[in-house]
């Protein structure tokens, strides 16, 4: 029996390998079909990180394209007593804690944040549900704050802790939190935003401070920020997946 390899078979083999190696390989290493499906996330993140190299900016829009009504999603009026008290005091007693793997832990008031370099941008906010709104945001680039705190070399992720529990639970697992890696943390459009559409952030939109991560979906952009922590990994935080929604099955990488 002679082995006959023709051109088409060679291509067929190459084609099958392309599909097989990229997806099948990842899927086979996963421990369950659920993880196998989730393995596409790494492919998406790797592909997008490649395409976004060089800190490409999310599109910015002219003032004329602002949404007449910007929908507020997630918590829109946190019930926590501590937060209610801060609202009553117009956030005079609010402080943003910056800690974890940093050289200089910080406690910053709104005035401290407003005194730092600022950036204003008009961007499109894409909700994971499918809708979009355009808003104008002003705030401190997160990188400016992190530079002042000084990240230790072991810091790989920035975790954001919020004042709101989006799900009321006894064990506190319903507390909203999020995380980004250093690529997004130091992206020029990643802001700790205190103003929206030329006015101080309102409660539905996350007063007094919310995160903007313009190249990802809305659920990444935590509202009601209380604390920022630099960490090596987030396995031991919350449900271990890097965020409130991630603990409930959403992708950690929200660029798609």
């Amino acid at each position: 029996m002679t082995i006959h390899i023709d051109r088409r078979r060679l291509i067929a083999g190459a084609a099958a390998s392309l599909v097989g190696v990229t997806l099948g390989g990842r899927a086979a290493m996963a421990s369950s079909w659920w993880d196998a499906l989730g393995s596409a996330e790494a492919l998406t993140r790797t592909a997008q990180r490649g395409l976004l190299a060089g800190a490409k900016l999310a599109p910015e829009f002219p003032e004329s394209s602002l949404s007449p009504t910007f929908r507020a999603n997630g918590s829109t009026d946190p019930r926590e007593a501590a937060y209610k008290k801060l609202v009553q005091g117009h956030f005079a007693d609010w402080r943003l804690e910056v800690g974890g793997l940093v050289d200089t832990p910080l406690r910053l008031s709104l005035n401290d944040l407003r005194a730092l370099p600022s950036r204003t941008q008009i961007t499109r906010h894409d909700c994971v549900e499918g809708w979009s709104c355009i808003g104008k945001w002003s705030g401190v680039p997160l990188g400016e704050v992190l530079k002042r705190a000084g990240l230790k070399s072991s810091a790989k992720f920035i975790v954001f802790y919020c004042a709101d529990a989006f799900e009321q639970t006894l064990d506190g697992s319903g507390q909203y939190y999020e995380s980004v890696d250093l690529v997004d943390a130091f992206h020029p459009q990643t802001l700790l935003a205190y103003d929206m559409n030329n006015a101080a952030l309102t409660v539905p939109h996350g007063a007094p401070l919310r995160l903007r991560v313009e190249r990802q979906l809305g659920y990444k952009m935590a509202k009601y920020l209380m604390k920022i922590e630099a960490v090596t990994g987030f396995e031991k935080i919350g449900g271990g997946n890097g965020g409130f929604w991630e603990d409930r099955g959403y992708q950690w990488y929200g660029g798609i």
Partner: peptide, 19 residues
Amino acid sequence: DLGGGRRWHFFFAWLLVLN
């Protein structure tokens, strides 16, 4: 289950494109 739907969708979107 939006998160579950997205998991299925993006895995098979990659498969559809590569295929």
